[in-house]
Design a protein around this nucleic acid. Structure first.
Lengths: 214, 214
DNA sequence: TAGATTGTTAATCGATTAACAATC
DNA sequence: TAGATTGTTAATCGATTAACAATC
């Protein structure tokens, strides 16, 4: 449908726009200009207009943007007007935390299955779902239309599990394992490497202390 | 100490170099060229050499890079040869998961205190630490030298808590709350917005399905 | 020495910002 | 209409890639 390719830098900014617009909407704000939004968000008005215009003209000269309309448009662009079915692979601490994360559900990301290799966890209840053994992955995926897998297994099993998920037709993986997955083209991967984030903080702390700040 | 400012794009790549070099080292690989590493990591050799040379010449013409040496140099640049003391604010599912995350400890990120507002959680044990009431934050921070705070509270309290942490002299915040913190310059913030990651995946799934792939 | 590969400069590419004509 | 603000083109800036001389 879209013609020109949108850069991932732009895509990465969309959720933040969506969040700010949602808050403005909740506050009853009806219209906003790129200039006002730029002050609020700490980015340039130019960038805001450029970003939005990648997807078409949502504003009106002399007026600005209608908050509610823009909010829904960006939600639509992000595919948030459709539900997404998730599975969580790995029911350890992190997997359990994510299964209980209500924010996901609010945005239409619904956890439909939780898997683990650990026999001690299998059978336990987690937010109304029974943790299944990973052996049942393939049959489960055949019965259910699952879009996204959240991968919270230790790094040793992660690559192989990702392959299995790709074979099952999963479209995207949110990867918390500390390895690079190597999935077929067309399977989207988003890495959340928490120790990388800590390392970046560590670097920036030291840089700030030894350097000249900011 | 360093003269020219290093771009955050470069900094963001350092943990990944560090990871690959660590693996190579564990495999007993002694030397590697930027060319070989570029194949392994799927980036250009040019970028690798440019990145490393931001911090000085770690290689040798005609030879390449000594894996063990480079591994330690990058670790040093990232500040991983020093210990970092953490507190976790918010002992819910996610906070507990992170407190139990052994990978952090392995890299010298040591959880020293866990706090929550919830009286039901206060007093419970978490990985050898007693969960404290958030009221005790200031006095605790006075007694301990804490570098980094991991913020896993609901978004409503996050901004105020971040202010308190900054006042206590925390140098960096790993923020899981779904808001933008507004901390004084010099306090480093790294955001982990999990729903943003899911939204990006959602966008890319739809783009791939409706578009021309990749 | 000859071969390999770095360190570094120059060229290219892409993303951000500025400017302004179009228009509500 | 006059004022405001978008949509969009042009200019700038920064990051990535290519090229190659330096050198181990």
């Amino acid at each position: 449908m879209e013609e020109k390719e949108i850069s991932q830098a732009v895509v990465a900014r969309l959720p933040r726009y969506f969040r700010y617009l949602g808050e403005l909407r909740d506050q009853g704000v009806e219209r906003i200009s790129s200039g006002e939004l730029s002050v609020l968000m700490g980015v340039t008005a130019s960038q805001i207009r450029q970003d939005f215009n990648n997807f078409g003209g949502f504003g009106q000269q002399g007026y600005g943007y209608n908050v509610d309309y823009l909010y829904h448009e960006i939600g639509h662009i992000l595919g948030l007007d459709e539900e997404h079915q998730l599975v969580i692979i790995g029911a350890g601490n992190l997997g359990q935390a994510l299964a209980n994360y209500v924010n996901f559900e609010k945005r239409g990301f619904l956890v439909k299955g939780v898997f683990d290799v650990n026999e001690e966890l299998v059978g336990r209840q987690l937010r109304g779902l029974e943790i299944m053994h990973i052996d049942r992955l393939e049959s489960f995926m055949k019965e259910h239309k699952i879009d996204i897998a959240v991968l919270t297994v230790p790094k040793d099993g992660a690559i192989e599990t990702a392959k299995r998920l790709a074979d099952c037709g999963v479209k995207a993986i949110l990867n918390f394992a500390h390895v690079d997955l190597n999935v077929p083209e067309g399977v989207q991967v988003e890495n959340v490497h928490l120790s990388d984030s800590l390392m970046k903080l560590s670097y920036n702390i030291h840089r700030y202390e030894n350097g000249h700040g900011s």
